[in-house]
């Protein structure tokens, strides 16, 4: 039962990365081009995001609910000892939410530079700290017994490794967003522009990813001994190769555009799956000792109730979500 709940948790985090992540990425891409982004580009981001914006971000809430109901001690520990990066994530979420609302509903202003600026900066800030949090949970510096502020509340996340996981998250999300947007763009120049940015972002991913491995002792060994992680790595490399081939040699027909987007999503899925398989079953790694999801699991009746609620919820939500995407997204492809 713990494992099935972990599958749900993994799934909601994956969907958050695939949909919410693209959203964050769109903001990060704007950050790169502060002030230079054309009207066309803005309109594209806006048109692509608006109808599905709210729905994309609820996957995070689903993940949070799973953690606090099924693995309460994990939730309590993260909220206590990683409260600073968590607050930063929240600050980012609130700021970009506001900026988005203002940009979209300030009916008389058009695309104000200020709103776009806030949106871009907070997207980057938020993604970075999401990455930091993910890194800090299993880096092994958490120390619930520490008595001083520095060791308890700063050391677990304020280090090179976690900063690199933050950078990795930023490049991953901007890679995804650039691919999605290149697929959605109708003007050729814009398509190529986003493809170029996807390429830059993928270089960033590779570099930051390598550095993440280099800065945690034992991570490479663990990776080599996890067959699932190795296969994910292999598949991700294959998909990247395909993307590179498609961008270099193929005409951007409808189907090519569809497949490049799918391949981009595939890369992200492989990265996430590889990450889960390397850290599994550890939920939190402390300075001394490890808390696994099995240790942290709530009593069986609780897990069962949650599982039923999730299945019922998904049965309602998935058709509705498919309908939403059918109305607003898929017709672009047809």
């Amino acid at each position: 039962m713990v494992f099935s709940l972990l599958l749900f948790l993994a799934l909601s985090l994956l969907l958050y990365a695939l949909f919410g992540g693209a959203d964050f990425g769109a903001g990060i891409l704007e950050m790169w081009r502060m002030g230079k982004m054309g009207k066309q580009e803005h309109a594209l981001v806006q048109r692509a995001m608006a109808p599905v914006w709210e729905a994309n971000h609820i996957w995070l809430i689903v993940a949070v609910v799973i953690v606090f109901m099924a693995f309460p001690s994990v939730y309590a520990t993260v909220c206590t000892f990683l409260f600073i990066p968590l607050m930063c994530v929240l600050l980012g979420i609130v700021a970009r939410g506001c900026a988005f609302v203002l940009r979209y509903y300030d009916a008389t202003a058009g695309h104000s530079k200020l709103y776009s600026g806030i949106f871009a900066v907070s997207s980057t800030f938020c993604t970075f700290f999401l990455g930091v949090l993910a890194g800090a949970m299993t880096f092994g510096r958490l120390d619930p017994l520490a008595t001083d502020f520095e060791a308890a509340y700063l050391a677990p996340w304020l280090n090179g490794h976690c900063a690199l996981t933050g950078v990795f998250a930023c490049s991953l999300f901007s890679f995804l967003a650039a691919l999605y947007l290149s697929g959605e763009a109708e003007v050729k120049a814009l398509q190529e522009d986003f493809q170029k940015r996807a390429a830059y972002a993928s270089i960033g991913m590779v570099l930051a990813g390598a550095a993440v491995f280099a800065t945690q002792r034992g991570l490479i060994a663990k990776f080599i001994h996890t067959p699932l992680a190795l296969s994910c790595f292999f598949l991700a490399t294959l998909l990247m190769g395909q993307l590179w081939y498609a961008f270099s040699f193929l005409e951007a027909t409808q189907s090519v555009r569809f497949w490049t987007r799918a391949a981009g999503a595939g890369v992200v899925a492989m990265v996430m799956l590889g990450w889960y398989s390397v850290v599994f079953p550890a939920a939190l790694v402390f300075r001394e000792g490890v808390l696994t999801y099995y240790d942290a699991a709530a009593p069986a009746p609780v897990l069962k109730a949650l599982l039923i609620a999730l299945v019922v919820g998904l049965l309602v939500i998935i058709p509705a979500l498919l309908y939403l995407f059918r109305i607003f997204k898929w017709e672009v492809l047809e």
């Binding site: 809430i61 109901m69 099924a70 709530a298 609780v302 109730a305 609620a309 999730l310 919820g313």
Partner: peptide, 14 residues
């Protein structure tokens, strides 16, 4: 409380 009252929160999420 998380395990005990998590259920309505999960349904609320849905």
């Amino acid at each position: 409380a998380g395990p005990i009252v998590g259920l309505p929160f999960a349904l609320e999420g849905a």
